[in-house]
Write a protein that binds this DNA or RNA. Structure first.
Lengths: 176, 176
DNA sequence: CAGATAAGTTCGCTGAACGAACTCTTCTGT
DNA sequence: ACAGAAGAGTTCGTTCAGCGAACTTATCTG
């Protein structure tokens, strides 16, 4: 059974960071969430893009659902899909700040992906504030595209990886 | 030997989030970094505050040093101390956004800690911008104090926990 | 009705995390 | 100078989660 033991509690329960890490601090969890922001919604798409063991993927999805970060919904053709809830969407600043840190220290060629305000072209900060127009940019108004440090995927890369190498809107369902 | 194998690589190396998680995505790493922001600098203080197995703490500290997130320096009385580097300090937005998310969804009584601009009392956002005075607030100008959702530690809690229940400046060395 | 595709399960293995106890070195008081 | 305490790890046996590969079951599709 996929009943997953609650991840062992970080002892210092007085801290909201520790509490958050109990939910999204396990291996793969944040990458699954990131892929959901990128529009991935189906089991096999997560599996082929992340190359995570399928049993682990099952566990993580179940757990994220039980924590209210994802919901499982029937998609077109009754196939199951996984989508971010409001609570999951609220993780965007976390995903973004970690990515910015990685870009700063591990991407000598510049950011691997760039996120821009669809309407004005500015680059919103992790909280969504656009420095060009001053607006608060929603995720649906945010474009993602390869940046200067992007490593072009091989021709024979999996279809999901190829699709994510094209400019897209965040959260736009990726139907491979 | 504390030689730690590089954490298994998350396969999708085209992504800076995955790269970041290889550095700070392992169990305990971000909590160690958080404690460093709170002023903890000594092995035993990390150990007693986090209640992490000591061998794991050794591994994590060595690894964070090898990645340039921490430095080991001789402190007063030649005792070793661990301090955040510039690269480590750049993780504050990550720590802060995760904490804010945890406060939002797992702290019904309100934030467990609040962080304020020493000069004006405003509460800077995770990027450091103070909504009251508009300034960009440095970490050294940021005060931390218990918030409405803070669980008062028991009288017999360890000295580190007790010290962190008092208002303090971020990064101020905690010499227990 | 015969593949093909989606969405998982099952299984044996290995390595990391765990807690408790132990070691070695440096301070501190008398 | 010496005894004891505190700091900073190491060692050790156990347990459990993550791993990859192969297998299963259910739904589509031609």
């Amino acid at each position: 059974m996929g009943v997953m033991a609650l991840p062992r509690e970080y002892t210092n329960q007085a801290c909201s960071l520790a509490r958050s890490l109990e939910v999204v601090g396990e291996r793969w969890s944040l990458l699954i969430v990131r892929d959901a922001f990128f529009g991935i919604r189906r089991f096999n798409d997560f599996s082929s893009h992340l190359r995570i063991p399928r049993a682990v993927l099952t566990d993580r999805l179940d757990f994220l659902i039980s924590e209210g970060v994802l919901v499982r919904t029937p998609g077109p053709g009754r196939r199951l899909e996984y989508e971010l809830t409001e609570k999951g969407l609220a993780l965007w600043p976390v995903v973004r700040t970690l990515t910015v840190w990685g870009d700063s220290f591990y991407a000598p060629g510049g950011p691997r992906r760039v996120f821009t305000h669809r309407d004005c072209g500015g680059e919103p900060d992790p909280m969504g504030r656009c420095p060009r127009c001053g607006e608060n940019v929603s995720l649906a108004e945010t474009m993602m595209r390869p940046g200067p440090g992007f490593a072009k995927p091989a021709e024979d890369a999996d279809p999901v990886t190829l699709a994510l190498a094209q400019p897209r809107k965040l959260l736009q369902p990726l139907t491979s």
